[in-house]
Simulated assay, not measured.
Amino acid sequence: MHGSTLTSLPNLITIGRILLIPVICWLLATGNLPLRAVALALYAAAAVSDWLDGYLARRLKLGSPLGRMLDPIADKLLIGALLVVLAWNGSFSELDLVPAIAILLREIFVSGLREFLGPRNVVVHVTTLAKWKTMVQLVALGIVILEALVPGWRLASDIALWLAAILTVWTGVQYFAGAWPHLLGDQK
C-alpha cells in the first residue's frame, strides 16, 4: 500500500515541515529583522503544509498510520521549538510567558497521556476543537513573529497567544477527563 510509505506525498510534506523547524528557529534566533521576515515566510509555508498534508492524504487516499503519527509530532515540534526560541529571543513579554508555558506543558502532557494509554489499547482521538486549537496556535505564533516586523501588532499578538493558550488548556482538560477512568485503573 503506497500510502503507508515514508515517501508518499503527504508524508514527504510532513517531513518537509519537520526539516523547516531548525531553519526557522535559527533565522529567528539571529535577531536580524530581514531574516525574521524570511522565517515568517517559511513558517507560513510550514503552517499551510499542516493543512495540505492532511488534505492530500484524504483526497488521494494516501492516509497511513505513519502519517497519523508524524503529523501531530510535526505540529508539536514546530510549536514547541518556536515557543522556546521566541521566549529566548525576547519576543514574549514576561506576561506572554504564562500562555507560552501553558501551551508547552499541555502539548507534552497530552503526548505523554497518549503514550501511557497506547499499550492499554486506548485511542485518544483528536477532537475538532483540538484541530482548531492547533490552527489558533499556528496563527498566534505567526502574529508573534510578525509583531517585530510590523509595529502596532502587540495587542493582536497578546490576544491571539492567550486565546491559543485557553483553547490548548481546555482541550488538555478534555483529554484528561476522558482518560481519567484509565488513569484510575478502571477499564470501563
Rank of each mutant, 00 (worst) to 15 (best):
L184Y: 09
N89W: 07
G54E: 02
D53A: 06
G178H: 07
L77K: 01
A39L: 11
V110G: 00
I143E: 00
E115N: 14
A100W: 00
I24C: 04
G54S: 12
V98M: 12
F176E: 01
E94S: 07
L86N: 04
I159Q: 12
L77V: 11
S8M: 02
W162Q: 05
L20A: 11
G185Q: 09
A44F: 12
G112T: 05
P34I: 07
L83S: 03
G178D: 10
L105T: 06
I18Q: 01
L141S: 05
S8N: 12
A44R: 08
I18E: 01
L52C: 05
K61L: 02
G118Q: 06
T7F: 10
T127H: 13
T5Y: 07
Q174I: 05
C25M: 05
W51E: 08
L97D: 04
G54Y: 06
A39G: 05
A164V: 00
K188Y: 07
A156M: 08
I13H: 02
R58Q: 15
L70D: 00
M1H: 13
A47K: 04
V144H: 06
R17C: 04
F116T: 11
I24T: 00
I24D: 00
P65Q: 15
I101K: 15
A46W: 04
I159V: 14
T30W: 03
V150F: 11
S157D: 09
A165S: 14
A81P: 01
I159K: 08
E115Q: 14
T14C: 09
P65D: 15
T14W: 02
V110Q: 00
A179G: 12
T134V: 11
V173M: 06
Y43S: 03
G31L: 02
G63F: 06
Q137T: 05
A130W: 02
W51Q: 09
I108K: 05
G3Y: 13
G80N: 05
I73W: 06
R120T: 02
A44C: 10
Q187C: 06
V38T: 11
E147D: 15
V126I: 10
A47C: 12
Y175R: 01
A100L: 07
Y175Q: 01
W51A: 14
A179P: 01
S93H: 10
V144K: 06
I24V: 07
L78M: 13
A148T: 13
A44S: 13
L28C: 12
G80A: 09
L56D: 07
P151R: 15
T5C: 05
T128M: 14
